[in-house]
């Protein structure tokens, strides 16, 4: 039988861990709420952007802009959005696994990685993957300026760096308990849907349509990157919250089991002592 004092010490340390995980859960819950609000607040812009793009796309020739140009699929850049910190369940593992799968499926092509977040950077750096660019600390509080800088870099690389396609890999926020990894093409900008339902409006243009279009497309890419960052940030907090909740529950279970065990040990000790006293008395009597 184990020493009673050892068991008590284990109960205490499980209790300490439980306090920490519970605190982390509450912190994540608070951050999640803010991140969720930001995701929701950013939606109208993205939606209106797509609406404007669609309505103008019907009037501008297809190959009017380098960001629309289809190059083929030989050189691919993957933008992988991971977290800076761990303790968030399978969040980073899922992203990395999906990235590796994607790379396996496209093994014939040249793939370069663009890693955001410390976790992904550490993983891919250890394994000597071709990483073109990496950044950390973006997901703490993604600002539009960050997204714009990333988008600018991607556009630059797409237009002048000879990339054929750029894809985004990130966790999409569905709910607190459900996040799913999304791999979606960012560049070239997918052919926008033509609305053929007669809702074509004859616009007046303050500037030449091609010029407006040329300025609108990079904004669209920025908005896409920004949305991905916000989704990823919200997912991270959600994943961490569930992970910490599970950890807190596990600690509670462990404490319960250990307490039961400690009581048994204590009882056994008392019983043993009683037997000793009784048998001692019997032998002298």
């Amino acid at each position: 039988m184990a020493n009673l004092r050892d068991i008590r010490r284990r109960i205490r340390s499980a209790g300490n861990i439980q306090q920490i995980t519970r605190a982390m859960k509450f912190v994540s819950a608070a951050r999640l709420r803010k991140a969720q609000e930001r995701v929701i607040a950013a939606r109208p812009y993205a939606r209106q952007m797509v609406a404007v793009l669609n309505s103008i796309a019907t009037r501008v020739p297809e190959q009017a802009h380098p960001l629309l140009a289809q190059h083929g699929d030989r050189k691919i850049e993957l933008v992988v959005i991971t977290a800076d910190r761990g303790l968030c369940g399978a969040y980073n593992t899922n992203i990395i696994r999906q990235t590796l799968e994607f790379m396996g499926e496209h093994s014939g092509q040249e793939i370069e990685l663009n890693i955001l977040g410390k976790r992904g950077r550490d993983f891919f750096r250890r394994r000597a993957f071709p990483v073109r660019h990496e950044a950390t600390g973006v997901l703490q509080k993604p600002s539009f300026a960050d997204a714009a800088a990333i988008a600018k870099d991607l556009i630059e690389d797409f237009v002048n760096g000879g990339k054929d396609q750029v894809w985004l890999v990130y966790n999409e926020f569905k709910s607190v308990v459900q996040q799913s990894v999304v791999i979606e093409p960012l560049l070239p900008i997918q052919r926008l849907e033509h609305t053929e339902d007669g809702s074509r409006l004859d616009y007046l243009y303050d500037q030449p349509p091609a010029q407006i279009f040329a300025n609108l497309l990079p904004r669209h890419v920025e908005a896409q990157v920004f949305r991905a960052l916000l989704e990823a940030a919200a997912s991270e907090h959600g994943a961490r919250m569930s992970a910490m909740e599970a950890a807190t529950n596990n600690a509670a279970e462990m404490i319960e089991g250990l307490t039961l065990y400690a009581n048994k040990v204590r009882q056994a000790g008392i019983t043993k002592e009683l037997i000793e006293v009784v048998s001692g008395a019997a032998s002298t009597g």
Partner: peptide, 18 residues
């Protein structure tokens, strides 16, 4: 607007401007 200030009143024709 990029070309100068512009006023919009109800019933304005469809317009796209930077």
């Amino acid at each position: 607007s990029a070309g100068g200030y512009m006023g919009i009143l109800p019933g304005h024709a469809p317009l796209l401007a930077e």
